[in-house]
């Protein structure tokens, strides 16, 4: 792999990422322009005169033509309520929320810790259990452990996230509470800075909700990927060396099986945000997902664009990192 090819690879990938993010912003902007009712109308008191509405529109910079507004997003827009807008400010600004009367960046920063806590915990459970269950199931294909994990996998693959969440609440919170065991709270979020114990206690059910379906999928992906690799010649070589099962499966097979797992893992990781929307809704966690739902239904365009941008960036970066790893691995071949 020449240094030139490496720079070439990086350059095309980075350009593509940038184009993707810009395209996402443009499409979302146009979409919200078309779909949402004029925010000035919403902000004005009922029966307000046309003049009042116009002056509100001016105050929020939405009297300008749409392309100017869109352009302002990428460079520097007008100040709204004393908040600069546009990416080219420092710190970059994502605009101003009509409904909440606050800068979008501030809103996002406030909600991110909850979503991050949710996603990070689920991710940990996801990775650990998928690998463990997947490899162990592959080791004895068709054995009892394989059958049990396969049943587990089918079950949670067939339950939408919100159903899993609701059932967990019904059985683990409600029924256990009736039985006198009140450990799991049904909803809410406690920042880790306030009380780490409470933080974890409140997040256990959401973590499970988010992770179970992912484990169900990934356990199977890893299993079949390992099974495929197990029939490869180089695993036979490992056996011919007299290596132990543990070394063969966790050393040789897993590392050989990693490519498809990584690729899918990258997409799935980004999809956790999608799952977070639902999980936050079910468990009343005040994170990015809930903010998205309330903003979209109330027509708060700057917030919707900001969140879409945020998740597109997360998606693009995770897939990029995964691609980098696969690329580095393929360069060895």
């Amino acid at each position: 792999m020449t240094a030139f090819a490496r720079t070439q690879f990086l350059r095309t990938r980075l350009t593509r990422m940038l184009i993707t993010v810009i395209a996402v912003v443009i499409v979302t902007f146009v979409l919200t322009q078309v779909a949402f009712t004029n925010p000035a109308q919403n902000l004005a008191p009922p029966n307000a005169s046309g003049e009042t509405i116009d002056s509100i529109a001016r105050a929020y910079g939405i009297d300008r033509p749409w392309y100017e507004q869109l352009f302002g997003y990428f460079v520097k827009g007008p100040d709204i309520q004393g908040t600069p807008t546009g990416f080219l400010n420092w710190p970059p600004s994502l605009g101003y929320s009509y409904q909440q009367q606050r800068p979008v960046t501030e809103l996002l920063l406030e909600k991110i810790p909850a979503t991050l806590s949710l996603a990070a915990g689920a991710l940990m459970l996801w990775v650990i259990f998928s690998v463990l269950l997947g490899v162990l199931a592959a080791r004895r294909q068709g054995g009892w452990f394989d059958k049990v994990t396969s049943g587990f996998s089918y079950t949670f693959l067939s339950l939408p996230t919100f159903v899993t969440g609701m059932l967990l609440i019904y059985f683990l919170f409600y029924q256990l509470s009736l039985a006198g065991f009140r450990f799991f709270p049904s909803s809410g979020y406690v920042p880790i800075t306030e009380s780490p114990g409470e933080w974890a206690r409140h997040l256990i059910l959401p973590w499970l909700t988010l992770a179970l379906a992912e484990i169900a999928i990934f356990q199977r992906v890893i299993r079949s990927s390992v099974l495929e690799v197990v029939n490869q010649d180089y695993i036979r070589t490992a056996k011919a060396k007299g290596l132990s099962d543990r070394r063969i499966y966790f050393g040789h097979a897993l590392s050989g099986a990693l490519n498809p797992v990584l690729t899918l893992g990258g997409i799935e990781l980004a999809a956790i945000i999608g799952g977070a929307v639902i999980t936050e809704q079910v468990f009343g966690i005040d994170g990015i997902g809930r903010l998205a739902v309330t903003s979209a239904s109330s027509g708060d365009a700057p917030v919707v664009i900001g969140i879409t941008l945020f998740s597109a960036v997360v998606f693009v970066i995770t897939t990029f990192v995964v691609d980098l790893i696969t690329y580095a691995r393929s360069a060895r071949q």
């Binding site: 999608g274 998205a292 919707v304 879409t308």
Partner: peptide
């Protein structure tokens, strides 16, 4: 790259 649910909401 579009978040399915969020975009769908809009």
């Amino acid at each position: 790259a579009f978040p399915f649910l969020i975009t769908a909401l809009s």
